[in-house]
Nucleic acid binder design. Structure first.
Lengths: 213, 213
DNA sequence: GATTCTCATTAAACCAGTTTAATAAATATA
DNA sequence: TATATTTATTAAACTGGTTTAATGAGAATC
């Protein structure tokens, strides 16, 4: 077999670890924070989740792909970004306890225009889109969880809009420091700048201005 | 009875027209564009909707109020805005066929910080929050409609973020002209400016620049 | 230990907005 | 029809970012 092809295949599959019947406790707990779900419905749902790991620098998603999986972050941090005129535009950082995917492409069933990249070695639980549908068909309560988690996502997205519209860049920087201080430890500053909608130079100026007062 | 009090009361209630068993066909059709709903489930849901009318300039919502109703716009246009440092910040214009409320305050069950104001005489169908819950409890299919309409709202909100982040003000102006040309007929320009996140002066400059090329 | 690479800062020139204030045009009201 | 009010435009001065390019500082690699 062609060595380069083998390399590509290994790149794609190396990160996958097969089904583990193990500790989905956090995931269950997170789901139950949204809606009451009976034990039997919960077990029905859990059996579709598969544990996967990725190495720092691996891509969970690249542009052009249709969205296959919904993820729950067990350990680690990813960036979700698009490329605009050659520059990465970070939409979001997802860390422990988050549900995530390229939700925009997932919902609309269109090819993604974004990247999801592991910023550290990560562990996730993944459920396929078709399995999500099975779970919602099977359980009214889990469908309710789906609705309520979508509401939550809307709230966060809406807050993002309000911040973009009503706060200055400096205020957004301070807000982020207050709300997610851990990000500044684990993510390089130029990605923070991108997330805030500025250039590294712009952020540097803001930091300088702040350090003077 | 004190005349001023009477005036206030009439201001509050004049706009309400009581239950009509009439043409919720558009509403039903819109719901069914999201999910299959049996006739009996649909009838169960429909009986909670009440038709209401408001005059131009009336407020459907003011800051401080908890959200009571979810609306479906039958006829007319409202603006949904907040006040930041004395200036109206228009979040959205809702027109015929839209579901709307202050979704952010509705979901979080917190007092609104926003206004919803009729920009024209309007007719809406309103369902109370408690009735929405009854409907979702009663019907898995209508709960699915709830989930999917929430997804739709997320998509629109997400597009809004992308536009705010990746397009210049001029590009956003042109985009709005292309996507919702009717708005420019029915809404004053300073509200359009606010929606786009600029001052009337800024929008005027953009228009001038465009008219030269 | 020296070299390379990545990331953050600084400087200079630039630009698309802002604010304030005056004016013009359109609309509503007496 | 005249008058008042609201809405849109223009001008001038200002501002907080941008881009480009050079420099500095830390971490990874040879």
């Amino acid at each position: 077999m062609d060595k380069r092809l083998l390399f590509v295949i290994s790149k794609i599959f190396c990160s996958f670890v097969e089904n583990s019947s193990v500790p989905l406790e956090e995931l269950k707990k997170t789901i139950r924070s949204y809606a009451h779900v009976s034990d039997s419905d919960m077990e029905f749902g859990m059996k579709f989740y598969k544990r996967k790991t990725f190495k720092k620098g691996d891509f969970l998603l690249k542009p052009g792909q249709y969205i296959e999986y919904f993820y729950f972050m067990k350990k680690g941090c990813v960036s979700y970004y698009s490329m605009e005129e050659g520059k990465a535009q970070v939409m979001e950082f997802f860390t422990e306890g988050s549900f995530f995917t390229d939700l925009y492409a997932y919902i609309q069933e269109i090819p993604s225009e974004s990247y999801i990249e592991a910023l550290e070695d990560i562990t996730v639980y993944a459920i396929s889109k078709t399995d999500v549908q099975k779970v919602f068909d099977h359980s009214h309560q889990l469908e309710r969880f789906g609705r309520l988690s979508m509401q939550r996502t809307f709230v966060i997205t809406f807050q993002r809009i309000n911040q973009l519209r009503n706060l200055s860049n400096q205020e957004r920087y301070l807000e982020l420091q207050k709300k997610r201080p851990e990000l500044f430890q684990r993510v390089p500053q130029y990605l923070i700048a991108s997330y805030l909608g500025l250039t590294p130079v712009g952020l540097s100026k803001i930091r300088k201005r702040l350090s003077k007062s």
